[in-house]
Simulated scan of single mutants.
Amino acid sequence: MSAGTPLLQVDDIVVDYRPRRGRTGGPPAVDHVSLDIPRGRTLGLVGQSGCGKSSLARVIAGLAAPTGGTIRLGGAELPAPRGRTDATRIQMVFQDPGSALNPMHTVRRTLTELLLVHRRAAGRSAATDRAVELLELVGLGAAVLDARPRGLSGGQRQRVGIARALAVEPEVLIADEAVSALDVSVQAAVLNTLRDLGARLDLTMLFISHDLAVTRYVADEVAVMHRGRIVERGLPDDVLRNPRHEYTRSLVAATPRMDGPALSAPEEARPV
């Protein structure tokens, strides 16, 4: 158990895509995973593609039902699938910002409709004002309101995705490979935005990545997932500098540098 009172508790989660009868061919995608994240902290979940990270994330976010186990938020068990109210409490930022946004909708429409549907603004004028606040929070601003996704850079689209996730005022933010599709210099800017938001908003985050250096930069703690199980967890330097599990050692050995992307690089230019 982590230091501090956990906000998010994941207990003995199983996700098994195999047919119920005669389940063979390897372990479940998620194999009895338990983890917790204290309020205001970021847990980095690392592992190679196919280890079960995204399956676990979808279950935590309420986008898929687990085969077994429970998820608690603030001590209360969350249903699966979630109702509309519960669904807003945990939000995701997805890997591909291009496919995650409706290409026909402007940024204004994407944010204001969400704010109005979930009653986070009283009327369109207030929704637009709040949309601008959200865009400024993620390092953009009113200049992109009437842009469509194709008119934005990859980094800008991902920032809009973060703003959209924050619009419903979630208690937990899940970033699932949120920078892996971006250029290295753009990764740095988005990572700095996520770190800043975590501090300013006291966000609780689950940051999922295959990149150990990126995770070390963002996370307060790191958990390593292998074949559907958590095999190691601890402080980033403890886990990544002195790995105990053989699988973690192999990940570290395959990482050419541990100081992350160009984290001191300037913010990307923001033309629309």
Rank of each mutant, 00 (worst) to 15 (best):
E113D: 11
E77A: 11
G83P: 12
E133Q: 07
G62R: 04
L43N: 00
V117N: 05
I37S: 00
R89K: 07
A61F: 11
G44N: 02
S99N: 12
L43D: 00
G52N: 01
R124L: 15
D146Q: 05
S49K: 04
V138M: 13
V46Y: 01
G47L: 00
I71V: 09
A131T: 05
T106V: 11
R119I: 13
K53D: 12
Q48S: 06
P149Y: 13
A121L: 15
R109N: 04
E77K: 01
G155A: 06
S125T: 09
A143L: 09
K53T: 11
P103T: 04
M92A: 02
T128R: 14
A127C: 12
V138F: 13
G62M: 04
G69W: 09
R124V: 13
T88H: 08
L35K: 00
A126N: 12
R39Y: 10
I71W: 03
R108S: 14
C51S: 07
G52Y: 02
D36A: 07
P38Y: 03
G68S: 12
Q91E: 07
T70G: 06
V30G: 02
H118N: 06
V107D: 11
A64M: 15
L134D: 04
G75D: 08
L152S: 01
L145R: 00
Q91L: 06
L152T: 00
I71Q: 02
G98L: 15
P103F: 14
A122N: 14
I60E: 02
S49E: 04
G123F: 07
R150I: 12
G83S: 05
G151Y: 05
R72W: 06
A100K: 11
Q91V: 06
P149K: 04
A64C: 07
L111W: 13
A126H: 09
A131K: 05
R41Y: 00
N102C: 10
R89S: 08
